[in-house]
């Protein structure tokens, strides 16, 4: 991509500068700014979450980084050889026509890795994702949580640069499955120490997983704050919620988002 920054020697795996993404709304016949001037960087091995209400353009930023959309203005750089960083998608994105093993090995297959080597490389990932017994199952035979674990395994299998993009991967799951998968993601991240950009609308999820949270506001989509999450690792997704700081940080983010909405209706009445 011509507009990517030249590779620089730095500890940052991702650098985004003044990224703007605008759409033309064909129905209302007006241009819409989805992302306004986003600038941030992600250190190597850092877990960064971008948190905000729906429509704030957080997914758009990720789609640009994933090579799925072209930015309108601005530049970005992602570590690696110019291939797109692997992405874990929002909803069930496994190909229904491939079994679990072949889904996870999809990126390897595209790169021409031989079948036997593919299977060898994928097997430990399947075991890590708790899917060893489901190697030959088709996606329609899996539960929602298992599908997303397979999606994470697929992204890990195809990841050369050590950068993972995750677009609300647990958003469609029920709360218990969701916390369970957060636990597993924490465990996997502890082991692999990938650079992760994680999109979520859940403040709790962002605090549970990340080293740093970028808070975005909607219309226009803008990064309004950056919050460091100081919890020690390894973390436990459930124990973390007992900590006083967890509550304080989450209220800080709530206040930021509330300030964006302006005074509430009650306040106007009073």
């Amino acid at each position: 991509m011509a507009s990517r920054l030249p590779p620089v020697v730095a500890d940052n795996d991702i650098e985004v500068e003044c990224l703007v993404k605008a759409f033309y709304d064909t129905r209302r016949k007006v241009p819409v700014v989805a992302v306004e001037n986003a600038s941030f960087s992600v250190r190597r091995g850092e877990f960064l979450s971008i948190c905000g209400p729906s429509g704030c353009g957080k997914s758009t930023i990720l789609r640009v980084l994933a090579g799925l959309e072209q930015q309108t203005l601005g530049e970005f750089r992602v570590a690696g050889d110019g291939r797109n960083p692997a992405m874990v998608f929002q909803e069930s994105s496994l190909f229904p026509w491939l079994n679990v093993q072949d889904n996870v090995a999809y990126g390897l297959a595209l790169r021409g890795v031989r079948k036997r080597e593919r299977r060898e490389r994928v097997q430990p990932l399947l075991a890590m994702a708790g899917l060893a017994e489901w190697t030959h199952a088709y996606p329609h035979q899996l539960s929602g949580g298992m599908k997303q674990r397979a999606s994470v395994a697929r992204a890990l299998a195809d990841d050369e640069a050590g950068v993972l993009l995750m677009d609300e991967p647990f958003g469609a799951l029920d709360e218990q499955t969701r916390v369970g998968l957060q636990q597993e993601l924490l465990r996997i991240w502890e082991r692999e120490r990938k650079t992760v950009v994680f999109i979520t609308h859940s403040i709790e999820e962002a605090l549970t997983l990340s080293d740093r949270v970028l808070v975005m506001s909607a219309r226009p989509g803008r990064i309004i704050s950056e919050i460091d999450v100081p919890f020690e690792r390894p973390r436990d997704a459930i124990e973390l919620r007992r900590e006083q700081l967890f509550g304080e940080l989450s209220f800080r983010i709530w206040d930021l988002l509330r300030a964006e909405h302006g005074p509430t209706e009650n306040a106007v009445d009073a």
Binding site: L68, F89, S93, L110, D158
Partner: peptide, 21 residues
């Protein structure tokens, strides 16, 4: 559309997109 996104994210060529999706 999401299947096409998966393939494009995995750097699939046009021919690969055709064959695998």
């Amino acid at each position: 559309k999401i299947y096409l996104d998966v393939a494009r994210n995995a750097n699939a060529s046009r021919l690969q997109l055709f064959r695998t999706v």
